[in-house]
């Protein structure tokens, strides 16, 4: 049901500003990308989407983003648990440090990884390469998307009453069974939301991945690095097509997130 009321000039002005802001920052670039992708017809699009380098870049982007999600799901849950349930010296500092990937320039993070894991670095791996190889990209994606799951789960876990957990213990459930059957279902929505954000961030990362991966085509090149490279190669259609697909993935994620948010509001209601 839509309610129609006369609006004040101020309200109209504010609506105008909000809409303009959204159009300039979001809709206009999207339209430009769509136009760029389709302006030379369908052939260059097919050519781009059948280019093994592009397909491989998507595989690396999506596959390793899923890897980052897996790692951050496990460690994010553990971290949230530790921050909420454990008291230890330096917990406040630890809590603050979790946000470092949000404030740290990804490019600098990438260089730091090269210093650490690269040739002659303190943690230079003896068996297989980390930087300028897929493990480095996984590491970079994991790093930049690290805080999301912790930050989504932490408040929900913190607000959770201990009593259902205690009830489960007295009913004979082990710690693990209690976590799986009693606590996890409560965290599920927040966790999914965190996973979606983690995935989105990990797929979209460019700076750290470009630095750590070295952009080796068909190996460490990701979809975002491909876009950058394609622009430099004057292959603007390729850049636009891949950008458009990344946009569509983002939009999909956005809708998924809204759906989850609604579920979260309902269940928390």
């Amino acid at each position: 049901m839509r309610e129609i009321k006369p609006r004040s000039p101020l309200a109209l002005l504010l609506i105008g500003i909000a809409v303009l802001y959204a159009v300039v920052l979001f809709a206009a670039p999207l339209v430009a990308i769509i136009y760029g992708a389709f302006k030379d017809g369908i052939d260059p699009i097919i050519e781009t989407l059948t280019d093994p380098a592009v397909l491989h870049a998507f595989e690396v982007s999506i596959g390793l983003a899923l890897g980052a999600v897996l790692i951050n799901t496990i460690f994010g849950l553990v971290t949230a648990w530790v921050l909420v349930r454990q008291k230890f010296r330096g917990r406040g500092l630890f809590d603050t440090l979790i946000d470092i990937p949000f404030v740290f320039s990804p490019v600098i993070a990438g260089y730091a990884m090269i210093v650490l894991f690269g040739r002659g670095g303190w943690l230079a791996p003896p068996l297989f390469p980390i930087v300028f190889a897929l493990p480095g990209i996984l590491l970079a994606k994991t790093f930049v998307s690290l805080p999301f799951i912790t930050r989504e789960v932490q408040p929900v876990l913190g607000a959770l009453s201990l009593e259902p957990e205690y009830a489960a213990y007295t009913l004979g459930a082990s710690r693990w069974a209690t976590f799986r059957r009693v606590i996890l279902p409560e965290l599920w929505t927040a966790l999914l939301y965190g996973i979606v954000l983690t995935f989105a961030r990990a797929v979209g990362e460019f700076g750290a991945v470009a630095v750590v991966g070295g952009n080796i085509e068909g190996y460490t090149e990701t979809a975002t690095s491909f876009v950058f490279r394609a622009m430099n190669d004057r292959n603007s259609t390729g850049a636009y097509v891949v950008s458009l697909i990344l946009c569509l993935v983002s939009l999909l994620i956005l809708f998924l997130m809204n759906l989850l948010r609604r579920r979260m509001v309902v269940s928390r209601g």
Binding site: I114, F132, G214, I216, E217, R229
Partner: peptide
């Protein structure tokens, strides 16, 4: 042949840093 292209200075530093 795997190829990587970036700015020459950055590429040189990457190789020195372990881009094999």
């Amino acid at each position: 042949i795997l190829e990587s292209y970036q700015a020459s200075g950055a590429q040189s530093r990457a190789i020195a840093g372990g881009l094999e």
